[in-house]
Design a protein around this nucleic acid. Structure first.
Lengths: 336, 336
DNA sequence: ATGACGGACTTGCGCGCGCAAGCCTCGCAT
DNA sequence: ATGCGAGGCTTGCGCGCGCAAGTCCGTCAT
C-alpha cells in the first residue's frame, strides 16, 4: 500500500470548486452538468465548465444529490435468504444491467431474519424496494414512512411481485414437470424437496401448484416429502415409494432430484423405469450427474429483462405493460 | 394494494417535527436520540423527546446523516462475478451479521464488467470498499476521490484482501487436496476446472498453488485442464488421462469433480481405483453424487467472522490483529 | 426614447442532520 | 451582594446539491 495516498486525501472536489475554477456560479455548474431543461447556457460557458469539471476530476456527491432531489436512483431487491444459485444470479445480472442503462443501481440483498443489522432500506434510501416475498406489515410501514415505495407480493403464496407475476413462470414450470411424468405414463407421483428451511415457503407454494395441476390431470394428489441429504431419509423414502407404487418424482430443484436419483441408484432401482425424476432449474450439475437429470430450464435472463422493464415502468408511474410469460423449457435427459 | 396508502403519503417526519412536538429545539432532539457524549440533558426532557419520537414514528434520514457526518456506515464488498454458491453465501451472511452488530451494513455486490450501470460506490458512498479482486488503478482513484477508503489485494494472484489474507485458507485447502492424493499413492496428477470464464483468475491462482505444493512433495507438476460440461471434453480427458497414467485429479470445486467423476463412470473406469478425485467446497451435492465425492470443507462462517473483525479494525484504524488461519477440513468419501 | 422580452446568468433557499459555540439560570463559594 | 462555574438548553453554521426566483443586459418593436 503506497503511503502517498493518505497524504493526497485532501477534501473532495465539489461543484463550488468547479464553479470557482470556471469563473461562474455554482448553479451554472449544476445546470451545465445536469443539462437542466429550460436553462439556456452559452456554448463558451458550457465548455469552460465541462473543462474545469474534467480537469478537477469532479464527481457529484450522490448523497447530497439524493438529499436535495429526494431520489436516490437505487432499487433495492429483497430476497429471502434463498441460496443464490446460478439461475437467480443470471436473473439478477439481467435486472441489474437493464436498470443500469436507465441510470438506476440495483442492490440485491438477502434478508437474514433476526440478525440485528441496521435495515438496509434505511441506509440506502432506495427509490423503490422490490421484495420477492411478503413483508411483515410493521417492516412495510417502516419502509413507507422512510419514504420508499414498496412493491411486494400481496399473497402469502408466492414470488409474485406487485403486478409482476413471476410466479406464473414458476407454476408453468411445474405444469410441465407434472405433465411430462403424466405423459410418460406415471400416475402416482410425489413432490420432493430438500428440508432446507430457508426455502420452505417457496416449497409449499410450488407444492400447492403441483397438487393443483395433478388434479387437473385427474391424478391423485402428490404428497410433499422433505428429504435431508445428511441422513438416510432419501434412501428410506425411495424404498417406501417403490413399495407403495409411486413411480414419478417431481423435484423442487435439481439438488432434490439428484438426491432422489442417487438414493434410487444405491437402492438398486432402475431409473427411469422403476422411478422417474424431473428436476427444476437445469443447473450445470444436472447434465453431469449419472444418470443425467431431466430438468426444467427457465430463461432467467429474459425473465430479468422483463422484470426490470416492469420495475422501470413502476418507477415512472406508468401503467404496467402486459406481462408476456416466459415459457419454461423441458430438458429431457436420462431420468424420465 | 390499498388505495389509502398514497393518500397517507404525507411528508416524512423529521427531527424538527419531533422537536416541535416535544417543545424543545432540534439540536436537543439530536442529542437525546444520539446520546451525544458531553451533552447533559435532564431526565424529563429526555423522556419527552423519546416519547414524541416514538409517537410520531421518527426515523432519522440516513442520507442527511451521511451528508452531515461524512460517514455512511456502509461497507461495500466487491466480488468479481463469481457464482455465489452456498459457501460464499454463508461467508457473506457471517460477515454481514458481524458488521451489523457493530452498526454497519454490508452491501455485497458482484461487479459485472462493462454493463453501463452507475458505479455502486458512488451511489452508496460507502465508508469502506473491500474488494476481493484487484481494482484497476482508474477505478481505484475514482473511489478514493469519492471519499471512500479502499481495501483491495495488491497482488494479481488472489483473493487476499489488504492485510487480510484470505488466500491462505485457500492454498491450505489445496495442500490438503494434493497431499491427500499423494498419501493415497497417486503420483501423476492433473488440476481440473470448469471452463467458466468468470472464475479464470481464481482457477489460475489455485492452479499455481497446486503446482507449488506438488513440487514440495516431489511430484510432477499437475497440468491445468479446463473442461466444459456441455461437450465431450471431460470424457475425452478421462480417456487421455487413463492412457497417460494419470490417476489423481485435483478439482477446482465440486462441480468440476462431479464432471470428472461422471465422465469416468461413463467411460467404465473404476473410481477411485483407476481415477481418484478430490473436490473442493463440499457442496450438498457432493454427498448425493454417486459415488459420493471427497471434498474440502472450509468453515466459511468462522472465516466470515474473522474477516468482519478485521474489517472493523480497519474502519476504526486500529492495527490488525494476528490473522489466525481457518483450517480447511478434508471430507473423505468414495472418490479417493 | 421607451418599454417589452428573452437570453444568460446569479442569488438564495431548502433537503435533514451533526455539532460547535453561545446563552440563560441556578446554586454555591467568597 | 457579587462572582463564577456548571447544568441545560438554543442558535446557527455547514455538509453538497437541486432548483425557483431573481437580476442584468442587449435587442427589437413601437
Amino acid at each position: 500500500m503506497e503511503a502517498g495516498v493518505e497524504a493526497t486525501a485532501r477534501r473532495r472536489v465539489t461543484a463550488a470548486d468547479v464553479a470557482k475554477d470556471a469563473g461562474v456560479s455554482r448553479a451554472t455548474v449544476g445546470y451545465v452538468l445536469n443539462g437542466t431543461p429550460g436553462q439556456t447556457i452559452s456554448q463558451p460557458t458550457r465548455e469552460r465548465v465541462l473543462a474545469s469539471a474534467r480537469r478537477l476530476g469532479y464527481q457529484p456527491n450522490q448523497t447530497a444529490r439524493t438529499l436535495a432531489s429526494g431520489r436516490s436512483r437505487i432499487v433495492l431487491f429483497l430476497m429471502p435468504d434463498w441460496p443464490v444459485e446460478f439461475r437467480l444470479r443470471s436473473f439478477l445480472d439481467a435486472v441489474s444491467a437493464e436498470l443500469g442503462s436507465a441510470g438506476y443501481s440495483l442492490v440485491a440483498h438477502s434478508h437474514v431474519p433476526g440478525h440485528g443489522a441496521p435495515p438496509l432500506w434505511e441506509s440506502l434510501n432506495p427509490d423503490l424496494v422490490v421484495s420477492a416475498v411478503p413483508i411483515e406489515p410493521a417492516a412495510l410501514a417502516a419502509m413507507r414512512t422512510s419514504g420508499a415505495r414498496v412493491l411486494a407480493p400481496d399473497t402469502q403464496d408466492g414470488i409474485g411481485i406487485g403486478g409482476l407475476d413471476l410466479s406464473r413462470g414458476v407454476s408453468a414450470g411445474l405444469e410441465i414437470q407434472v405433465g411430462h411424468l403424466h405423459e410418460r405414463g406415471h400416475r402416482r407421483l410425489v413432490y420432493a424437496a430438500l428440508s432446507e428451511p430457508r426455502l420452505s415457503s417457496l416449497v409449499s407454494a410450488r407444492h400447492r401448484a403441483a397438487v393443483a395441476h395433478a388434479r387437473v390431470l385427474g391424478l391423485p394428489e402428490p404428497p410433499l416429502v422433505r428429504l435431508d441429504y445428511r441422513d438416510r431419509s432419501a434412501v428410506d423414502a425411495v424404498h417406501r415409494w417403490h413399495a407403495e407404487g409411486v413411480t414419478g418424482v417431481v423435484a423442487y430443484n435439481d439438488d432434490a432430484a439428484a438426491l432422489v436419483v442417487g438414493a434410487a441408484v444405491r437402492a438398486g432401482l432402475q431409473v427411469p423405469d422403476d422411478l422417474a425424476v424431473v428436476g427444476h432449474d437445469d443447473v450445470p450439475l444436472a447434465s453431469m450427474f449419472v444418470p443425467k437429470l431431466s430438468s426444467i430450464r427457465l430463461d432467467t435472463e429474459a425473465l430479468g429483462r422483463r422484470f426490470a422493464e416492469a420495475v422501470l415502468h413502476h418507477l415512472d408511474r406508468r401503467p404496467l405493460p402486459d406481462w408476456i410469460p416466459v415459457r419454461p423449457l423441458l430438458v429431457r435427459r436420462e431420468t424420465t
